[in-house]
Design a protein around this nucleic acid. Structure first.
Lengths: 214, 214, 214, 214
DNA sequence: TATGAATGAGCTTTCATTCAT
DNA sequence: CATGAATGAAAGCTCATTCAT
């Protein structure tokens, strides 16, 4: 394979392999991705991938965990780096930016880990739960800060968080999943979601839910 | 396989095969589903599957098209069968009911066709577009009927339709994808979505969008 | 693979495969024998071997069972076909003749099944036990017929059977295992063994065992 | 790894490697034993094994030769250390004691070298021949010492030696090969074999062979 | 001297696909 | 119409072996 960076320390090679694996798994899916392809994309031979990462399952698991941590970390960092009175908005932007910035990682999590059964789906659900919990806290803080009355019930806030996260994921999927027509940028997606949701959240928090009978 | 259902007319046999294929593809995914498994599930021999449906790809394509038409048809039928002043609500209920009623078909479309690359992803996107367009029309009619001022701009309505459909898909995925915690029924999902979204749509249509600066 | 007997019924193909597998396993051992080699020796493609016989382990197991039955059957048949007053001699000749006639089957049992661990070693031990039990009965009958006094104790007879069988196996191994110098024919081996052992057996049965002190 | 026994003289290292190799080859067989496993068992790195012993084949060959010499040596030493009028008995006891004391070495010779084809089977046969020749001499001397008449013919003595050695090997195999039922100790095995064989040898040497016709 | 890094080649197994009947 | 028989091609994984330090 030529003189391309041979004989590197293990940690470096492992990252190369994970990068290649995320790309390949993200684009092809677990089954369709072959270890040959991943090894070639990483610029190493297949046995080395097995030596360092054990098996296709272990490799996929490592990808899932790495990407899950990266996504959660991106949201947290965005919130912490943004203005304290706009945490939800910052978090959403961070979420969309990360999703747009690493579409393969996003696909690994939301398209493949989710559908590939037990060890992985569990990791995925855990990550999702972590985000939802975090968003629940952000919403609750926003509600407290805005002094809305009556104080929204905790269960309700959690439901809103689920819905909000679900909507964000859906938009991110639209963004990433190869839609050719007017797919929005990360910033537009965040705006659209706030537009779509905020008044609803707001009204709900005022105790005025929409109901089928009006 | 003895005398079990032999010599059926071609159309019937084909439906059996498609049923079996949708179930198998839906549960296992494209790659993990084997033609052996599908043929056995359909109660026919493998060569017959090839005789009628040509190849694994063609078979999958037929599944995707059949399920896409079924989903779009279910939404349309629900709207047409419902009260004329609640078309959106009826459509959503139809959407969720269909998704809940044929989870394998849903999985074929949203989990597998979407991720399996070109001929199928295109079919999927076309179906999605059809739904979004249809929803756009429903929203526009609702707006016209409610005489809101100023008339919402067309591009905006389309964005809302995308968001609404995306949110609905996300909820349907939650419903179907083996979520252990409180996954909602089809009816609850529709209510939740209207609750979440309607006030937002309403406000937007009154010309009062949320904006990052307040 | 040319026109060599294609499209044969399953039972026939299975025997071809077992034949080839016994040859290959016998000559190379379990690990060194490759499924490619076996398939080629059988004149079929590898997938057909898997279709009919499932896995390398199952194939090996089938070989072991077939050869075990063949060996036991050969001994039994030789005894039944021989003169009723020379059953042990007939049985030994049958044993050596079978071992010499199918050295690969013999190697599968005595060289490979025996050393390849649990499911197979158990089958091997069961077969060996069957032979030892049978020989025990033959010896007991011979003793009864010859009216020897004192009647040999049952446990002693069983020990003699073990020793006799062991010696026979050892001679058969010598016969089969590629020894180039004066390896005996089946008939010679039987004679040698009787020569070697009979007087000993005889004396023992007369209650005059050899002892270290004279 | 670390500071565990580094910088040992070459001869010591080589013995460690051979010890580990004999253990591993004996328990797993040639093919199933991996160089990784052997290197780890020896507490050294794999390249060092190659540096000292060249290749897997060479390593196996070294094991075979070492164990063959050890076995022959054990028999010779037992004979020389025992009473001059019981050489055969001493030799047998030495044989069984050695086999029981180093079962892995025994397995390397009798289970694996014997079945692994040419360079090794030749070494094995050479060793066996050496033992048989030695035993032939012992028997001949015993016959001379006991003044039996007529002098047994040389070829006959050689055949007896083969049979005796074969029986001993068979018993040793029974002893070592994980037999669950009443496998004998080394001493019992020697007694059993003498019991079984001596009267036969004795009679033969008196010129009274057993013959098929009575 | 001794080793971490790396690979070519081969093995078992699976699967979409096609004949011949 | 319908199927049992058969295979080419590829995938996951392992292992003996060699560099570069």
């Amino acid at each position: 394979m030529g003189a391309k960076g041979r004989r590197l320390p293990r940690a470096v090679r492992e990252q190369q392999m994970l990068d290649a694996a995320v790309t390949t798994f993200g684009q092809r899916g677990y089954r369709a991705a072959s270890m040959d392809e991943i090894a070639e994309a990483a610029g190493v031979s297949k046995p080395l991938v097995y030596l360092y990462l054990n098996s296709k399952d272990d490799l996929f698991g490592a990808c899932v965990r790495r990407e899950a941590e990266a996504l959660v970390g991106a949201v947290r960092a965005a919130v912490e780096d943004g203005p304290p009175d706009r945490q939800l908005w910052s978090g959403l932007r961070g979420f969309f930016a990360h999703a747009a910035g690493s579409p393969d990682g996003w696909a690994v999590l939301y398209l493949h880990a989710r559908t590939h059964g037990e060890p992985f789906a569990r990791d995925f659900v855990a990550m999702r739960e972590e985000i939802v919990t975090y968003v629940t806290r952000l919403i609750a803080e926003a509600a407290r800060a805005s002094d809305c009355e009556p104080k929204p019930d905790e269960r309700e806030v959690s439901g809103l968080a689920h819905a909000l996260v679900g909507a964000a994921e859906s938009l991110a999927g639209w963004m990433n999943c190869g839609a050719r027509d007017g797919a929005p940028s990360a910033k537009e997606a965040a705006g659209l979601l706030m537009n779509f949701a905020w008044a609803g959240l707001d009204n709900l928090m005022q105790g005025r839910p929409w109901s089928p009978t009006r």
